[in-house]
Amino acid sequence: MELRLRINGDERRFAKPLTVAGLVGELGVQGKRIAIERNGEIVPRSRYGEVELADGDRLEVVVAVGGG
């Protein structure tokens, strides 16, 4: 089964099942200082391994950048 996710505004497809931790690996951002919002709610880092993503989920994956 295919999993369609909207990540940072772009639609991407993955193989089911997929946890947030799995997604972090797929995106190549493991080990980075990031934060993730799923459908408007924060996913705490401690729960990445247990939160399973569902078809149609909207995710925001952010980092800190230079700003004033």
Binding site: R33, V62, V63, A64, V65, G66, G67
Partner: peptide, 29 residues
């Protein structure tokens, strides 16, 4: 101050991070 922005997916994993340049041990972010 720092800004919060979408991560650039596909960027090189080794790319430096602003938070490494400004350690929280030294600065209040």
């Amino acid at each position: 101050t720092v800004a919060i922005r979408r991560v650039n997916i596909g960027q090189s994993a080794g790319e430096p991070n602003l938070l490494d340049v400004l350690p929280q041990s030294r600065y209040t972010i």
